[in-house]
Design a protein around this nucleic acid. Structure first.
Length: 610
RNA sequence: GCGGGCGUAGCUCAGUGGAUAGAGCAACGGUCUUCUAAACCGUCGGUCGGGCGUUCGAGUCGCCCCGCCCGCGCCA
């Protein structure tokens, strides 16, 4: 795909080559915004190689630069050691408006990623739990990365690696066996499951404390401690009690029974999966999230034995005295980890290895991208090292798109037990409610159903944008006002600008228009918007290469700001000339289109009215 | 201890070797008889955590410190 700025850069490169600058010394950069140029060639390196002073070289190149016919280069001038290039504004305007109008919803999209097949692993909520603010990160960042990679031309397969297996699920079954199955429906049922899980975890913790205490006394007894000797009988009873199968053992036992197909365990397991998916789907729809597959950890159970055997056979892992399968010293400074528990049960790691093997066989990806939190970094490093060592994914790029942790307003980790957990559904409802209050105030004339629709797009857009507008590696401290902000650098600001454009276009449609004369678009505010539109394709490429939705968010925000200057400076419907009015109308329509495309990559909808 | 991340305006953040380091929020002051005031304009605000180095050029790269966060075998 060759967009206008690509041709501009190509023309500059050709001109420099023709002037005798060797290709390897040509470096074209975007100047700082305060420099009155669109692209620049810093001559330092070339000047040194050619044995002249940089300003002299810049001047010589500027004097002799040949601009071909039809070129997008408007002006070339030396500024000290820099050779600055400005766009031919009339040609740029014509080209960009043509591109946006012609491509519509695919303006900004590319074919540079063609040939890539990328599996993106994201969202991955746990079964029998509600999604909370922590999950929104993987879900939203993941979906946006998927959208961006698709726009880049890659074939993308999204997979929701549900947490539906392992000892954690064994604990849920054990808890249900202990307390009985919740009778509630929907989200309330998930909350009830969480409650059981939390209570059961407390029992496990209590058992562990008991075991520790028994161990302490046993040791004191061994050492001939006087008090211990006196309480000998009590201690042996304590030790015996601690040695009994406890709640943790039961959780592990249930995870094993589940793995081995126990009908009772499987039936309960299936019910909770169905329940969780039903509840989560509603949230996904609100967030504009669609994930192609949801195989889940359980799907890989039949492949695990072979994975373990192969790791053992290849000498990458060994079985220790207790029966656990250990992976050791794959790389310097890479901590040892397990592939199988000593009781024969499998682990997160085991299933992740099988998952890679399956994806490679089934989907033949060129890349697998994990959208996972920073705390999982070590796990992924171990996983990647292991599959390389076993030879499962030798020529496949394995990528960790990482993001920081969400903390509460005091910097404390979110936890159900602390009572500071923020769940996704109430968060979205709150965002909707706040947006609705503003809609009612400023768009009271619209009918209530449309007000609801706008509030949903705006409120949820605000929440999504809050998660996508910055580099995701930073930790986030929860701040409701910022998360639900409806002004400043926020989705509602951008949506509002789009709505203004559409309002103008709507009003204009009522009256007949003249033929547009886009050569009249010469106001600086008009040109600023046109240049912004020209930059979308580059933003898409950069975002795709960096897995960075915030690059798109930044483009949207800058474009919206440029638009607001246009709105201030250049009346559209009351333009001085009918031909100018039509030209501005075309520009405004193109801007709304490009912004809508950008927001779509972020899973944010742009309402017609606000 | 080892490994990873972060440190830029009061707060939240851009800035991926180039020119005078930029936004938003907050604060203060202005702008609705004129295409939507969820907006716009202005003011205030910086030893880029500290040091040394590499380079024609460092917020950006390397090394050493300081501070905060995270992770490091039978959870996921």
């Amino acid at each position: 795909m060759h967009y206008s700025l690509d041709r501009f850069e190509a023309h500059i490169r050709d001109g420099l080559l023709a002037a005798g600058v060797p290709a390897e010394l040509i470096e074209i950069v975007a100047p700082k915004p305060n420099i009155p140029a669109d692209l620049a060639f810093p001559t330092f390196r070339a000047a040194r190689a050619l044995g002249v002073a940089p300003p002299a070289l810049a001047q010589r190149l500027a004097d002799g630069f040949v601009v071909g016919g039809g070129s997008l280069i408007g002006a070339v001038h030396a500024a000290g050691p820099f050779l600055n290039f400005s766009l031919d504004q009339a040609r740029l305007t014509a080209t960009v408006l043509d591109e946006v109008t012609r491509l519509g919803g695919t303006y900004g999209h590319d074919d540079a990623g063609a040939g890539e097949v990328i599996v993106v692993d994201y969202s991955a909520p746990n079964i029998a739990k509600r999604m909370h603010v922590g999950h929104i990160r993987s879900t939203i960042i993941g979906q946006s990365v998927v959208n961006i990679l698709r726009a880049y031309g890659c074939r993308v397969i999204g997979d929701n690696h549900l947490g539906d297996w392992g000892k954690q699920f064994g604990a849920i079954i054990a808890a249900v066996m202990h307390y009985g199955e919740p009778a509630e429906h929907g989200e309330a049922a998930l909350a009830a499951f969480e409650e059981l899980y939390t209570r059961y975890s407390a029992l496990i913790k209590h058992d562990r404390e008991l075991r520790d205490e028994a161990e302490r006394w046993r040791r004191r007894l061994e050492e001939g401690d006087a008090e211990a000797l006196e309480r000998r009988d009590w201690i042996s009873a304590l030790v015996a009690q601690a040695a009994e199968p406890n709640h943790d053992d039961q959780a592990r036992a249930w995870s094993l029974r589940l793995e081995r197909g126990d009908p009772q365990a499987r039936a309960l397991w299936q019910r909770t999966i169905d329940l969780t998916i039903e509840v989560n789907d509603r949230l996904y729809r609100r967030l504009g999230v669609r994930i192609d597959h949801a195989y889940g950890e359980s799907f890989y159970e039949p492949m695990l034995a072979a994975v373990i055997d192969e790791a053992l056979a290849k000498g990458v892992a060994y079985r220790d005295d207790a029966g656990a399968v250990v992976v050791d010293e794959l790389e310097p400074n890479l901590p040892t980890f397990l592939l199988q528990r000593s009781d024969g049960g499998t682990l997160y790691m085991t299933r992740d290895v099988a998952t890679i093997q399956f994806r490679v066989r089934q989907m033949q990806p060129t890349r697998i991208v994990y959208v996972l939190g920073i705390p999982q970094e070590l796990h992924l490093r171990q996983l990647f090292a292991l599959v390389r060592a076993v030879g499962y994914a030798t020529d496949i790029e394995l990528v960790h798109v990482k993001f920081g942790t969400v903390f509460d307003q005091h910097g404390q980790a979110l936890s159900t037990r602390r009572g500071n957990m923020v769940y996704l559904e109430p968060l979205l409802d709150e965002a909707h409610a706040r947006a609705l209050a503003v809609v009612r105030q400023s768009s009271g004339e619209l009918d209530p159903a449309e007000q609801e629709e706008i509030a949903e797009a705006v409120g949820i857009g605000a929440v999504i944008y809050n998660d996508l507008y910055q580099d995701p590696r930073r930790d986030i401290r929860l701040d409701w006002d910022r998360m639900l902000a409806l002004d400043g650098n926020s989705a509602p600001y951008i949506q509002y600008m789009v709505a203004r454009c559409r309002s103008i276009v709507r009003r204009a449609a009522a009256e007949p228009g003249a033929v547009a004369d886009i050569s009249q678009l010469t106001h600086p505010s008009e040109l600023a918007v046109i240049k912004q539109l020209a930059r979308l394709p580059r933003a898409v490429r950069e975002a795709a290469q960096r897995y960075a939705p915030f690059v798109i968010a930044e483009w949207c925000y800058d474009t919206a700001r440029a638009l607001s200057a246009l709105y201030r400076d250049c009346p559209v419907l009351r333009a001085e000339q009918p031909e100018l009015r039509s030209a501005r109308l075309q520009l405004v329509a193109a801007t709304a289109q490009a912004l809508t495309n950008g927001l779509a990559l972020l899973c944010i909808r742009a309402p017609q009215r606000m």
